[in-house]
């Protein structure tokens, strides 16, 4: 049984070793400085020769940008849903709406990916594209930051809403009574008393959602595109760390080439990033708890 329990540790060690080992191998072939600070991502196809540009910055920017769009969709919708469900909704509405939102979390990401590629992308083009309803020509193709971001936001709604819902419910009723007793309306009570009290938990929920967004793969592989670029235009296709891990490791390239090994360095970056976010999330939650205990 101790052995079984240790599998968790072995897995972590396995992850770290397989990442570190191959990453070191990569940095032997490719300059680490150029990887972390290069603004160009242009791998040459293996076997054809020519030097590859493997700068991680455009990929990180794409990851970050898409995650921000996703959170901009998920946070307001998820948070307001949670507030309504826990403070206003009748038991009947709650019994229907809460599971309905949670279904969104149970759907496999490949479904969202396909939805982004085949439904949301074309829909956005028909609004923002050439000859669209708005008469503007902003979006060239279905794959774009906005496409992936919106769909990922959809996926994250239940993460934000059900965690926040639990946290808001955990705020003691005495706190609400204190506010009502002073003549506050329900919305004043929620905004000025309940939410500040629930803030640490909500911040934790949002950081966990952010970590989910950064590590999400299928939606960006199918919805965001393959072009690595540093741009602010949400209608343009961009790519992410996860999407490039997939494309660098699913080709026929030889495992010893920098073009394949770079995927491990990307995986390492991703691992450190998400782990860091989780640690920060836990730290913030603990700090706030100490303050209000």
């Amino acid at each position: 049984m101790i052995a079984a329990a240790s599998i968790a540790i072995l897995t972590t060690i396995g992850i770290v070793l397989s990442l570190v080992f191959n990453t070191v191998e990569f940095f032997r072939l490719y300059n680490a400085w150029d990887f972390f600070f290069g603004v160009e991502w242009a791998p040459s196809f293996s076997g054809r020769g020519g030097a590859s540009e493997l700068g991680v910055l455009p990929l990180l920017w794409g990851t970050l940008y898409i995650s921000i769009v996703a959170l901009a969709v998920a946070i307001p919708i998820g948070l307001f849903s949670a507030i309504y469900l826990s403070e206003y909704a009748s038991p009947r509405v709650r019994a229907i709406a809460k599971p309905a939102l949670e279904v969104l979390a149970g759907i496999p990401t490949i479904v969202y990916g396909l939805f982004a590629l085949l439904t949301v992308g074309p829909l956005l083009v028909s609004v923002f594209g050439e000859g669209g309803y708005l008469g503007v020509d902003w979006q060239g193709g279905g794959r774009a930051v906005l496409t992936a971001g919106i769909v990922m936001g959809m996926m994250l709604i239940p993460f934000v809403s059900s965690l926040s819902d639990d946290i808001i419910n955990a705020v003691p009723q005495a706190m609400r009574d204190g506010s009502y007793g002073l003549g506050a309306t329900q919305s004043e009570t929620i905004r000025q008393v309940v939410l500040p009290a629930a803030l640490p938990g909500i911040v934790g929920a949002i950081l966990l959602a952010a970590s989910r967004a950064i590590g999400e793969t299928m939606i960006v592989v199918l919805g965001a595109g393959a072009a690595a670029r540093l741009s602010l235009n949400p209608f343009e296709a961009m790519t992410t760390v996860t999407a490039k891990i997939v494309s660098q490791l699913t080709g026929d390239s030889d495992f010893a080439s920098p073009e394949a090994l770079v995927a491990f360095a990307l995986g390492m970056t991703l691992f450190v990033l998400t782990l860091g976010l989780n640690v920060i999330a836990l730290y913030i939650v603990r700090k706030y708890r100490e303050q209000y205990d």
């Binding site: 329990a5 240790s6 968790a8 540790i9 897995t11 972590t12 396995g14 992850i15 397989s18 990442l19 080992f21 191959n22 966990l208 970590s211 950064i214 590590g215 999400e216 793969t217 996860t242 891990i245 997939v246 490791l249 995927a263 491990f264 995986g267 991703l270 691992f271 998400t274 782990l275 989780n278």
Partner: peptide
């Protein structure tokens, strides 16, 4: 072990793919 388990639950699935490959 406890810390590990909760952290593993939050590791992106693609990282597990890299582990499997390596």
């Amino acid at each position: 072990i406890e810390v590990n388990i909760s952290n593993l639950a939050a590791v992106p699935s693609i990282v597990f793919g890299i582990l499997g490959l390596a």
